[in-house]
């Protein structure tokens, strides 16, 4: 078993919104509830789920870009959850992020060279004299020529911008990168390029990825382990092979069956999930999936299912699942 890089326990995030003319009504959005998982050094852990499931919030909370409301994130023996900016700064180098939208991820007023130099000079990772060589190296790492350093973001295509965004994350020489829907906004023919680039860089620099995505087919191909989230909670977490071959949580199954398959014959007969994701402003009591779950029974409406390891390295939060390929309703 490999080493744990980040150990996450009970990570939660609530957003308090104010409504009403005088802000007197407080609404709480439970964006992330009790997220517990370890991220292992060198692996790609993917988080999937539909909008509002908390997968991006998880990534942001890990990096303290959103301050978590509770829980801990142990990195290098220290709890970094909720550290203020100054205390967090030394960790920022190690923990990086690549965002979804390649069009707004770069400062339009800075050349690519300036954008990449900023973290290098700020963290004193190279001297002014070493800088040009370092920039060329970074650009080469992401498959761009040194000439790109003089260009502005608007002169680049979406795929090229995303390469620059990856280079900017690499500039800090990180150990861990959150890829927040990093390929979702790209053209189909470019997605595979960027995906392959991320995998090459992982091999070269021993990176660990938290890969946040909604496209399960992509996730299947690149992940070591996959976590499925629903309305702010983890529903299932397992090695990719297990999860796709033997999904245990009813939501995981429904999600998998909703993924369109590029096969005209297979595609037309599938099970459908009824209804829509409830609002995170007012999530259902008990198991949050019970309103749409084909297996839902009484306990699901009141009791939050425990997060249990039902098979080696395969965790599920469902009253109905007791072991691999087993659903047990007699003893809930």
């Amino acid at each position: 078993m490999t080493q744990t890089l980040l150990s996450i326990k009970g990570l939660s995030k609530r957003f308090d919104l104010r409504a009403g003319a005088f802000g007197q009504t407080a609404i709480t959005v439970h964006a992330l509830d009790d997220f517990t998982a370890d991220i292992r050094a060198g692996e790609t852990l993917s988080l999937v789920g539909e909008s509002g499931c908390g997968k991006s919030t998880t990534g942001f909370c890990l990096l303290n870009l959103h301050r978590p409301s509770g829980g801990s994130v142990i990195y290098d023996g220290q709890d970094i959850a909720g550290l203020d900016e100054d205390a967090m700064r030394p960790f920022r180098r190690d923990l990086q992020i690549v965002f979804q939208d390649p069009y707004s991820t770069l400062n339009p007023r800075m050349t690519i060279g300036e954008a990449l130099s900023e973290p290098i000079l700020f963290h004193k990772l190279a001297t002014k004299a070493e800088l040009p060589a370092r920039l060329a190296q970074l650009l080469a790492d992401v498959g761009l020529t040194p000439a790109f350093a003089r260009r502005y973001p608007h002169e680049l295509s979406g795929g090229q911008r995303q390469r620059v965004a990856i280079a900017r994350a690499l500039a800090c020489q990180p150990r861990f990168i959150v890829c927040d829907e990093a390929i979702s906004a790209l053209d189909v023919s470019v997605q595979a390029q960027i995906l392959n680039l991320l995998l090459d860089l992982q091999d070269k620099y021993g990176l660990t990825y938290l890969f946040i995505a909604h496209d399960l087919a992509v996730v299947r191909h690149i992940s070591d382990r996959v976590g499925v989230m629903y309305l702010g909670r983890l529903a299932e977490l397992a090695p990719a092979r297990d999860l796709f071959a033997r999904p245990l949580h009813p939501y995981t199954r429904a999600l998998l069956s909703a993924v369109p398959e590029p096969d005209p014959r297979a595609a037309r007969s599938r099970q459908r999930l009824e209804g829509e994701v409830p609002s995170p402003l007012n999530p259902p009591q008990g198991c949050r999936f019970h309103t749409r779950c084909p297996l839902a029974r009484d306990p699901c409406k009141t009791k939050v299912p425990a997060w249990r390891e039902v098979a080696p390295d395969h965790r599920v939060a469902c009253h109905a699942v007791t072991g691999k390929d087993q659903t047990n309703w007699e003893t809930p």
């Binding site: 189909v188 023919s189 997605q191 595979a192 995906l195 392959n196 995998l199 496209d215 399960l216 087919a217 992509v218 299947r220 191909h221 690149i222 990719a240 092979r241 796709f244 998998l256 993924v259 398959e261 590029p262 096969d263 297979a266």
Partner: peptide, 12 residues
């Protein structure tokens, strides 16, 4: 280049 749920899972 289209990833699928069926067939072999290949990283690249």
């Amino acid at each position: 280049s289209l990833p699928t749920l069926a067939g072999a899972a290949m990283a690249r």
